[in-house]
């Protein structure tokens, strides 16, 4: 029986690993860039790797090394890093109902990044309950591992890699919008949701283009929520 449970868990973990592969299209180039930026800012390879291992939050890591390199006060670096990550507050509650209770969550939730959340929010309700823990484990560990390895590779050979394959760094990141599109599309179930989601995407794009990428996600979600609560569509009254 125990063996059966273990093999089911192993299968679901592998399934999670397989389904997380599209995320790597975004993780690899960004982690390579982070490794490169961190070494250019004066951090050693293993210091950059430790930052990726412990903080593990893309945008805030770039801000962290940038502010440290600029000589900002460390308390301000910590406060701004946490402010950027505060959007993660709503991620856990959104997937809590689909995950079983486990003593491993306090460390496993370390892997709940924007991308892992988006994938989990879409896939967890479609999976049998017995497979959800293993699936999340597979997704979270693959993404985390690749992020750390990518940082090390970027710190040691980032400049050489980008010089050899300049287009690869442009093409791979497109896996992320493509993946998120397949997650958003099924949620367009009526006009109200279509407007709220469209408003969110447009405002996130706007904020990012105008240099507000660090706060674009929570601000855009707030715009979408305002649209969702303010605009309602009523069925047309029949004139006959």
């Amino acid at each position: 029986m125990n063996q059966l449970t273990n093999s089911t868990s192993g299968r679901s973990t592998l399934r999670g690993v397989r389904e997380a592969i599209p995320l790597l299209g975004g993780y690899i180039p960004v982690s390579l860039s982070f490794g490169l930026v961190a070494t250019q800012a004066g951090f050693s390879t293993w210091e950059a790797a430790v930052i990726s291992l412990l903080i593990y939050a893309g945008a805030s890591q770039f801000l962290f090394v940038g502010m440290v390199a600029a000589g900002s006060p460390l308390w301000l670096v910590v406060v701004l890093t946490l402010l950027i990550n505060v959007r993660h507050v709503v991620y856990g509650p959104n997937i809590a109902a689909w995950l079983p209770r486990s003593r491993h969550w306090p460390w496993l939730m370390h892997g709940l990044t924007d991308q892992v959340f988006a994938l989990a929010h879409t896939r967890l309700p479609q999976l049998p309950e017995s497979e959800r823990f293993g699936w999340f484990l597979g997704v979270a560990l693959l993404a985390w591992g690749v992020w750390i390895v990518g940082t090390v590779v970027g710190a040691t050979a980032g400049e050489t890699l980008t010089a050899y394959w300049p287009l690869l760094g442009e093409i791979m990141p497109f896996a992320l919008p493509a993946l998120f599109l397949t997650m958003v599309a099924p949620r367009v179930t009526d006009k109200r949701w279509a407007l709220a989601l469209g408003c969110t995407i447009a405002s996130a794009l706007f904020f990012t283009l105008y240099g507000w990428s660090n706060v674009a996600i929570p601000l855009a979600a707030a715009c979408g929520a305002i649209s969702f609560y303010m605009v309602r569509f009523y069925p047309r009254k029949s004139t006959l």
């Binding site: 975004g26 180039p29 959007r87 709503v90 991620y91 509650p93 959104n94 924007d114 991308q115 959340f117 988006a118 929010h121 879409t122 760094g169 442009e170 990141p173 497109f174 992320l176 919008p177 998120f180 599109l181 997650m183 958003v184 949620r187 949701w193 709220a196 989601l197 969110t200 995407i201 447009a202 405002s203 996130a204 794009l205 904020f207 990012t208 283009l209 990428s213 674009a216 996600i217 929570p218 855009a220 979600a221 979408g224 929520a225 969702f228």
Partner: peptide, 22 residues
């Protein structure tokens, strides 16, 4: 409000990721 913010956060991540590298 939490269950509504979930899909909106995913849409926001989509919007942010739409901007090409160059």
């Amino acid at each position: 409000w939490i269950s509504i913010l979930g899909p909106l956060m995913i849409a926001a991540v989509l919007g942010v990721s739409l901007v090409p590298v160059n």
